[in-house]
Design a protein around this nucleic acid. Structure first.
Lengths: 250, 250
DNA sequence: ACAGCAGCCTGATATGGATCAACCCGGATG
DNA sequence: CATCCGGGTTGATCCATATCAGGCTGCTGT
């Protein structure tokens, strides 16, 4: 019976959050073993996007949030003038679309940076479910709040920090997100182009390039194209903190 | 009976959201007439803070969100180094603390910019209630999402716009928030010091000062200390949009 | 009435990063 | 195999805004 229901309302791509290696990062994190099935019932799993394809853009009516399953996504706001501001990069286990929950249409454009698969959470069903599962509701608040904090952090970086500090901060953020996924935190390949980094951090591409080579010359990193190796994490942390130090040091 | 319960669990400051002039901006917006009472039951109303007093800071354990009832609040993140980054200004009807819902302690410090009264929403009770009132839950998601968007907007302003554009945008934002409260959108007094504006917009105080006088010389505004009059709103809008124009114009 | 001080304004100078211009590399394309 | 093209790097120059320095105004407390 339950079988039959699922079959007719869902695509053949029935989700199995239980077996997903990311369940400890993603929404399932919040729910009890026996409630997991209810989450699975509303999730549509396994849509694949090729590099450069849009998951949604600012003209798409807002219906769903998306969890990255593999690959990576860049979100950006495109102004009327065609100007772009990259607002975030999303890696496996992270949830995209939370900024749109107050709008008819998505508040940003989401683009796959590489071949990427996502799980789709229709918000009407999600809201219904969070109404029933307090843990899940709590987790949603948690995630959204986190998103606000991230964005404040970005604003801070943009308004107070030098080019070097911004890039160091980005590298460290990526590093810790790779670690979370049990991948090497010192040896990874950037999913995004220099251009996107520049845009995200409010810099010119040329500046990003220069800082990369400067860091390389100082022996802090090794970088060849998108391949990056963090040779001296401590030094990177110093860079990001130095600006904070000056304030109180004397 | 209901009376008795309320009496023992609440301070004498029983909220009356029904009579609040801000109920059409604040959380009550979301709930039905007959559910309003349940919201009132959890709200603690009428705490007053004098200019400069902290509503909370980053060492305060996170318990509650606060709605501004009168006055205004500035939130900022203070780094270990003592550096401050102003993350927002909150006026009557707006909710403070959403960025902290993922933390043990508040993610920022909230300070009254003038004599300010707030309504307090303990989050444990609030979450419980939103679990029962889908409309209220939806409204919470809405508010948090809005907060993310605002912050992205700020990031955009900080990374792409000139000093003039940033200040024009702030003035317009304040203007529309005064209008929402049915106050003059062209003739108001800034609740915050130049210093806070500068910090918020990632500028030096001197630059803010200069832009104010420049705008004044161009006949766009009239400003004397914190008293501001917007003489030419169109012109201000032009300033904020100009940068977007260039992108597509040719 | 006075000193002290915070907030604000103005001018002169310095600078980090944008901008402009050129070149290089590697992979796709015919 | 030659060509092309997007992405990345490097160098030279310029500019918006920070920074430094000084002065003004209007409180606040004595």
């Amino acid at each position: 019976m339950a079988q039959a229901i699922r079959l007719h309302q869902m695509s053949p791509l029935k989700a199995s959050c239980q077996q997903c290696s990311l369940s400890n990062l993603c929404l399932p994190l919040a729910v009890e073993e026996n409630d997991l099935e209810r989450l699975e019932d509303i999730v549509q799993q396994g849509r694949i996007f090729n590099r450069g394809e849009h998951i949604f853009d600012q003209s798409t009516p807002f219906r769903s949030c998306f969890a990255v399953k593999s690959g990576s996504i860049k979100t950006s706001i495109i102004t009327e003038g065609g100007d772009e501001q990259v607002t975030g990069f999303y890696m496996p286990g992270e949830l995209v679309g939370l900024d749109s929950m107050s709008s008819e249409h998505y508040a940003c454009t989401a683009k796959a940076l590489e071949r990427t698969s996502v799980c789709e959470f229709p918000v009407d069903k999600l809201e219904e479910l969070t109404g029933k599962l307090p843990e899940l509701q709590h987790h949603m608040y948690h995630l959204m709040s986190q998103e606000i904090q991230n964005s404040h952090q970005l604003a801070m970086l943009l308004s107070k920090n030098t080019a070097e500090e911004r890039i160091a901060a980005l590298l460290l953020s990526l590093s810790s997100r790779f670690r979370r996924r049990r991948m090497s935190p010192t040896n990874f390949s950037l999913p995004m182009a220099r251009n996107d980094i520049a845009n995200f951090l409010g810099l010119a591409v040329e500046t990003v390039s220069r800082v990369f080579t400067r860091f390389q010359n100082q022996g802090i990193i090794r970088a060849k194209g998108r391949e990056v190796e963090l040779l001296d994490v401590e030094a990177l942390q110093m860079v990001t903190r130095d600006f904070a130090r000056q304030g109180c040091q004397q």
